[in-house]
Amino acid sequence: MKKASIIALNTLKEAIRNRIVYAVMILMLLGLLASQLLTPLTMGEQIKVIQDFSMTFINFFSIIVTVFVGTSVVRRELDLKTIQLILSRPIHRYQFIIGKFLGMVLLDIIIIFIMGMGVMLNIFLINKSVYYSMWYFHEIHYIAILEAIAFMALQLILINAVSVFFSAITSSAVIGALFTFFLYVVGMFTQNLNDLLKMVHKSYITWIIKIIYYAVPNFSTLDLKNEAIYGIIPNINQALFLFSYVVLYTGFLLIVAILIFENKEIR
């Protein structure tokens, strides 16, 4: 665990010193700021639009950063051969993979923390300015929004596991990133797959859809943005279920990645 944490901290350092990560983070904060300047729409609606926009905005960009960083973090070590300098020390390959993964999780938490603060502040300020102009406080479900943001972190963690997995099986960072992003998009549409299931009747097609439905990580169930605006939060059982889903799926992907990685030729 100690070895893995040393790797994790170095991975985090790499990400934090990456200019692109910075640029996107700043872009995200600027985007939130810009939403302040949007001219008032209809009373009341504005608050909803801002909440929706803020969350969607940071969700989208944090996923872009995570896919980008996640796939390069392992691939780059292999491509630049810096991995040789690590694996020639007394360290197991699984410690390397877990360290890399944990480093990315740390990055997720930092990104989500900063962006989450940004979103909360943004919504709070807008609500306040609406109050001054219209003497009307819109009810905002801060707790629900916090929870939705926390579940975004779970999405990112799952994405990290997917990108570690693809880094282990593909030989290029770009292909790894594309696969990861593709899987995320499919995972966002799994709910629609369910609807599709009701319309098709050919049995083998139902089977294929079912397999996809269960095999693809179900990102859409981790998306609580819309519910949060209306203050609908998952009860403790649902939350626990989703949390264990992420843990199990992540664990599964990491184990497969480690098994592949154990026998990989380090060039």
Partner: peptide
């Protein structure tokens, strides 16, 4: 040398 380092089997 890679064999010595266990980079390849």
């Amino acid at each position: 040398i890679k064999l010595l380092n266990n980079f390849i089997k």
